[in-house]
Design a protein around this nucleic acid. Structure first.
Length: 654
DNA sequence: GTAGGGTTAG
């Protein structure tokens, strides 16, 4: 059995050659010259037919070629018939009846012919027919060729048919002749990964006699997708020759697992190693920059993109990613410049730009862009509407929001999803219409998810509404019991209303569930590009003395203009003096004071904070932008705040 | 015939 398969699997001649050779062996002397001449002519005809088939665009043309084949000595040639079948399948003709009938007429189908048909069935997802043909091929002793196996594994992976995949795995071992063929092993690894059995794939990998960069990359990518960057990194370090794809998997792996610093580091190493980058590599590192929100990296990566031969400034994919990156780095102006500079735009470009405007409180610009978009060929999708609704929400445009919400299904056939309802809850909630928001959650036709209750809870924080907050929070405690943010938010709402016993109940619940508050911190880039981090109450910075002094000076000037500390922002039951002291040490204030002393007068200050900005800090920064004449941009966990001349782009809604 | 990808609201 094994010998037979091996013999046929390596055969490249087709049936015609086989028949001619048979004639030759029966009468060598007579047939030699004839055989040689005929063989030459046939080879010529074959290549002619193959070329013609490559140019075929419709059935009539193909049938003409077929007629020509049937009239020639190539009538039984598996080589040209396989090509014929492949052409039909490429042009989306179903395997039954035409290609199948071509196959059925061949007396001695070879593995190529089987393979062409099997692949056709696989494209139609007719797994059973493929397997039947495969079994027939095995029974006839023809093949199988390694790429038939590869195609079978691919189909099993796509259908997540693990048990069939294992059976075929067994077949490859039985045949035993494929140890040398990497494609079979690689497809097998891929199949196990797609079926969700990474460890089976790893086992195949470990047992393969030979591996190539694709075998490694498949596994590295699978580890990255499951969030196991440690295993991905270990494998990657062991990979002897790293190509562009392998590097890219690491870059985007880190980016997708919220490790932007690592992603950028890997990208830098990649460049050092001299490997080229393409569009896809750029996307990974652009996404990392977006997460980091650091302006320094943003300009650097734009330069890299512009210099790269693939990711030139106007590529629609890279351009859209750059728009998102600049928006998240706080430079919505740069984002718009990229948008304007793009030769081609698609739904991603528009959606990203609309979301960018929304994020920065520029609702008017977002709406204008949406209006512009609907005059183009580009159809808005569900994400576009998230952007438009978010814009309405951050600008308090309740009526317009409702209109858009209705338009979405009526004019664009997009059924509002839970996420769209969340935007509406957010819109109503921010506008202070908490009862309506709560009603909407209760009456909408979709099961509310965490995000929706979260939006409601967030609105309760703004409007200090402890009763609805408790309802929303209780749902959240069930839906996402380990998300500390919700507990903190509820405690803050209670604290702002002075309900201290409720505050302590929430704190107890947190402790009981083993949850600890994440320390809040802020960071700021100095002019030299250094990143300075501040935790609340942090006095470890070398310039702490100056920072403290600058902050005191600032507050003094603000108080002279009527600023009063927002004592209700402190969620602890302590006296007012302590509250004042605690507010003084908030991380964003330390970052602000450092920004004031470490940057040139008149220049922009950018601060990033890992949680929501508090009300007191918000009003201090508002004031600072006015009396110090500074543009101040703060990115918190939710959005951007642009402070200019005493006013914030968020309209005091966040 | 095998490996890598952009926008999502609290």
């Amino acid at each position: 059995m094994v010998t037979l398969s091996r013999k046929f699997s390596t055969a490249t001649s087709d049936s015609l050659t086989y028949i001619s050779l048979k004639q030759f062996s029966q009468n060598p002397q007579k047939s030699t010259p004839f055989y040689q001449i005929q063989q030459q002519q046939l080879e010529h005809l074959k290549s002619q037919i193959v070329t013609t088939l490559d140019g075929c665009k419709n059935l009539t043309q193909i049938k003409q070629v077929h007629a020509r084949i049937l009239l020639s000595d190539l009538e039984q040639s598996c080589y040209v018939l396989a090509k014929l079948i492949r052409t039909l399948i490429k042009l989306n003709f179903p395997v039954d009846p035409y290609p199948r009938s071509i196959f059925n007429r061949v007396k001695y189908p070879n593995p190529f012919l089987y393979n062409a048909l099997i692949r056709g069935y696989l494209i139609e997802e007719r797994l059973n027919e493929s397997i039947e043909l495969y079994s027939l091929m095995r029974k006839e002793g023809a093949g199988p060729l390694s790429f038939t196996f590869a195609a079978l594994f691919k189909a099993c992976g796509a259908k997540m048919n693990m048990s069939l995949g294992r059976q075929i795995h067994g077949q490859t071992i039985l045949v035993g002749g494929f140890d040398e063929d990497l494609h079979v092993g690689n497809s097998m690894i891929d199949m196990y990964i797609k079926c969700g059995f990474l460890e089976f794939g790893r086992k195949v990998f470990d047992e393969m006699p030979k591996r190539d960069v694709i075998s490694w990359t498949e596994l590295i990518s699978a580890y990255a997708k499951t969030g196991n960057m440690e295993s991905a990194g270990e494998l990657f370090d062991g990979l002897p020759v790293k190509d562009m794809v392998a590097w890219t998997v690491m870059v985007s792996g880190f980016a997708q697992n919220a490790k932007p610093r690592e992603a950028i580091m890997v990208f830098e190493k990649m460049q050092e190693s001299g490997v080229e980058t393409d569009e896809i590599t750029l996307l990974g590192v652009i996404s990392a920059c977006a997460q980091l929100g650091a302006a320094k990296y943003a300009d650097w990566i734009r330069d890299v993109a512009e210099k790269s031969e693939f990711g030139g400034k106007h590529s629609v994919v890279v351009g859209s990613a750059l728009i998102d990156m600049y928006s998240k780095c706080g430079s919505v102006g740069d984002a718009y410049r990229v948008f304007q500079g793009m030769k081609e735009r698609n739904v991603y470009s528009y959606s990203s730009m609309i979301l960018g405007f929304a994020m920065h409180g520029r609702a008017h610009d977002a709406m204008k862009l949406f209006d512009e978009m609907v005059t183009t060929e580009i159809k808005p999708n569900r994400v576009t509407f998230i952007g438009v609704l978010t814009a309405c929400s951050h600008a308090g445009m309740v009526e317009q929001g409702w209109q858009i919400f209705e338009l979405m299904e009526k004019c664009y056939g997009i059924k509002p999803s839970a996420d769209h309802y969340t935007c509406m809850v957010d819109l109503l909630g921010r506008a202070g219409r908490l009862q309506e928001a709560h009603e909407l959650v209760k009456t909408m036709p979709i099961e509310p998810h965490g995000g929706m209750w979260g939006a409601l809870l967030g609105a309760c924080r703004i409007h200090k509404s402890p009763d609805i907050a408790a309802i929303a929070a209780n749902h959240l405690f069930e839906l996402e019991p380990y998300c500390i943010g919700n507990y903190v938010l509820l405690a803050n709402v209670y604290a702002s209303c002075g309900r201290w016993s409720d505050v302590s109940t929430v704190r107890k619940l947190m402790r009981a569930r083993g949850l600890r508050k994440n320390p809040a911190f802020s960071w700021i880039e100095s002019e030299k590009g250094m990143v300075h981090e501040f935790f609340s109450g942090d006095m470890t910075h070398p310039r702490s003395g100056e920072i403290k002094q600058a902050l005191e000076d600032l507050l003094e000037r603000l108080e002279a203009k009527g600023y009063q500390p927002h004592l209700s922002s402190v969620p602890y039951d302590v006296n007012d003096e302590d509250k004042r002291r605690i507010l003084m040490t908030h991380s964003e204030k330390l970052a602000l004071a450092f920004g004031l002393i470490s940057t040139l007068p008149g220049s922009e200050i950018r601060i990033v904070k890992n949680v929501r900005i508090c009300e007191d800090c918000h009003s201090v920064i508002c004031g600072a932008s006015q009396i110090m004449g500074r543009e101040i941009v703060v990115r918190d966990i939710m959005r951007f705040h642009h402070f200019h001349d005493g006013i914030c782009s968020c309209g005091n809604f966040w």
